[in-house]
Each structure stands twice: as C-alpha cells, then as structure tokens.
Amino acid sequence: MDTGLFPAERAFRAWMLVSALTFAFAVPFFLFGGVFIVPAVNFVSAHVCPLPLYPLPQDGMEGAFWRVLAVSMMAMLTWACWKIYRDVRLHADLTPIVLVSKCCSTSMYLALFASHHYLAYLVGALTDGPIFLVTWLLWFMARPADQYLDRREEDIIFAMGDALIPPDGAYETGFIALRTESLADLRRSLATLAPLSLFGLRLIIRVLNIAPILSGIGRHTLLKAPRAERPALLAGLESHRLWVFRWMTMTVKAILMIAFFNQPEASRAVGFDPEARIRP
C-alpha cells in the first residue's frame, strides 16, 4: 500500500512495479525468444546503419549457456523490484542490486561498442542506461522519506553550519550547539518544497561538498577538510569568480542561517527582540 508514503516514494514504488513487470516479462522472453534477439538486431543494423554485424554463436549450446545467465539475472531483478514495490521503506536497501546490475551492463556495453562497434552493444547501453538513471534518480529522491535529507547531506550541512558559525568568537552560541533544533526547522522548510526543488537542493548540497576540489581552491571535500580550514573554503567559494559556486554557497548558507537564527537562543545572541515594537 502507498498510504502515508511521500510523493517521491510513491513515484519510486510505481517505477519498481513497472520494473518488476518488465523484468518478469524478460524471463520467458530471453528463455524462449533470446535466440532471435541478435539476428533481429543484425537485421536492423544491416538495413539502417553502416555498422558491422554481430557474429552469431557457432554452437547453439554456447548461446544457451549465456541465456541461462541472462534469465537468472532477470529473475533476480524481478524478485528485488517486486519486494521493493511491496514495501518501499522496508526493502529499499535492495535497490543497489538493480543499480549495480544496470550500471555494470551499461558501462560494459558502452566499452564493447567503443571497441567493436556492434549495434547490439549500443542497443544494450541505450536500454539499460536509462533504466539505471531513472532508478537511481527516483531512489535518490525517495530515500530520505520524511527526513528530506539523507545522513550524508546532514553531515555536509552540519559541517557548513559549523564553519559559518563556530562555537567561539563574537558570541558563545555556535551552530553545532543548536544543530538539532536548526535541522528540525530546516526540515519544516524542506517539507514545503516541490519534489523537483528538493532534488535540486540536495544535489546542490552534494556538489557543494566537492566544490572546493572542483573550483580549485582546495584539495579536500568540505567534509574531509580539517575543521579549521572549512571557513576559508566556504569564503573562497562564496567569492569565487564563477557565479555557480557563489550561488550554490549562498543558497545553502541562506537556508542554514534562516534555520539557525530562527532559534530564540541564536537570535537573542545577536540582539534581536521578537517582541520589539515602536508603539505599545
């Protein structure tokens, strides 16, 4: 049942049902019709594009040997997708089975196509590549469920918050001391975002982690950098000559600081009085 699931989880669950049915169909298709696949692709290749024809297996038993492997793979993927569809939260950890399978096949098909130029390899890459991408995308969006950010993204924003507002200095309160409350407020904000916006923000957080390396201002990610170096890295990104780094840094800084200064202790520390007024 998808009652109580988040929109991203419902989308992922629906995709798993489609995947399970597709892989289930592939089991008898490969078992009984697998022998026709390569000739069919060769037929297309011969009529549509000037690519060499894939050599057919000389011995029928050799083809049968590989078909057994293909069928067993399809059966395993069917089972994994069906389990995830049945309970997307309980069995989401099975998703890497699908991802690893499709990532391996896509990359190997591409490598083989680059070296041998058979259309069959390109067809394989164009089939499995999108399956890999869509599955990864929907899994990435669905994984944190009602937490909106996953553990790694939380670690990145905690590191950023600590670098922005360290515990010592002009006032005592630091981000880390209020990280639980700030994260709760951050989640309230994230709950209002459309799935696509939330996906974009999570990507920005992850890219920002590796931005010191991408931008050439550091040799470590934000998380791996020594704590004392992080403020300089953030300041460097914020004033970087490429606007994309500046904008990403300011975006995440904004959501963090709005959540942090929303805590009464933090806003009091800078002298804000929420009850202040000109007239009684």
């Binding site: 670098a163 922005l164 507002i165 360290p166 010592d168 200095g169 002009a170 006032y171 992080r230 403020p231 300089a232 953030l234 300041a235 914020e238 004033s239 300011m250 800084k253 904004a254 963090l256 600081m257 709005i258 200064f261 800078v270």
Partner: peptide, 12 residues
C-alpha cells in the same frame, strides 16, 4: 544575515 559575506569568526 544570510545575505552577508564571509564564514567563520569574521562572519560571526
């Protein structure tokens, strides 16, 4: 304050 530049002790 989110719109102001810097990080760390300076920003604080």
């Amino acid at each position: 304050l989110a719109s102001l530049p810097g990080a760390g002790a300076d920003y604080k």
